[in-house]
Amino acid sequence: MAADPTAVSGGAAAGAAADLIADLPPAPGVWCSGLRKRYGRRPAVEDVSLEVGRGEVVGLLGPNGAGKTTVIKMLLGLVQPDAGEVMLLGRSASDPAARARVGYLPELFRYQPWLSAAEVLALHVRLTGAGVPAREQLESLSLVGLRDRAGDRVGGFSKGMQQRLGLAVALVAQPELVILDEPTSALDPLGRADVRDIVLDLKGRGVAVLLNSHLIGEVERVCDRVVILDRGRLAASGSLAKLLGQREVRLHLTDVSAAAQARLAATGELERAGDWFTVALPADDDATTVPDLVGDLIAEGARVHAVEPTRISLEDRLLGILRAGHGGDR
């Protein structure tokens, strides 16, 4: 950088170039392509590609043994991929320095039992080379509810407390990419809510988050996109809206005239159970269908008691995808 020749030949040109670079969208948090890994003769991961943009939360889903942890470990250089390429924050992952701004909570979270919680954080800050002051390090302990245990030896921590410490470790060195492998597996419901808040806060600050959890409800609440793995392969991926596909709306109506009924039927496939009407919404719904429909129904004299959007749950969709994948083999 210091020996940049353009800086000598023309300061203005160099400035313009710097502006251009600054205006470019930042490289994604993670980008990987064609990842493959076999253990012995058993393939664990086959041809997995994914990307997590800045400020995006991506959920990695799949049954046990699908290869989620293996993918995460390959991203971090903990497992050597047999094939494929990984970029972290715009740098090739083969250079350890690419992990300077990466926070990681392993599925198997264990920290040096002979150190105190505060010492573990200090160690990780030193290893990243980031100058995080001690006060800020303690703040990340507060964030996970361990502030008053900062001086206690980690060896005496419960599993849940160690997982909380692991979260603090992942967050302590000002990460721009955070990878959490089942971050709530040992946490109480309160801790799970904390993790949700932490993830949403990271997203708000433009941090890329890759999250692996089998608590689908949790994933559904925080993730922008999901990637579904099944037996090492990408089974499906996309935004929640796209993956969940068709949505429906349930209406509780009385005084439904023939015209109102026709209006309902014109919107989409209609089902009726007593006073409850379920209407499928068009796939290209741009958020005007429901208000327009309700307005028209009222104009036709119908009385509207309730309007409930319903979605096929992610869980049902996931089961569907996995069953379809397995059925295809047989």
Binding site: K73, L76, G77, L78, P96, A97, A98, R99, A100, V102, Y104, L105, P106, L108, F109, R110, Y111, Q112, L123, H124, L127, T128, G129, G166, V169
Partner: peptide, 14 residues
Amino acid sequence: ESGIALAVLARPVR
């Protein structure tokens, strides 16, 4: 074995 190495080696270290 215990997993302590995971968090350490995921840092920018060789």
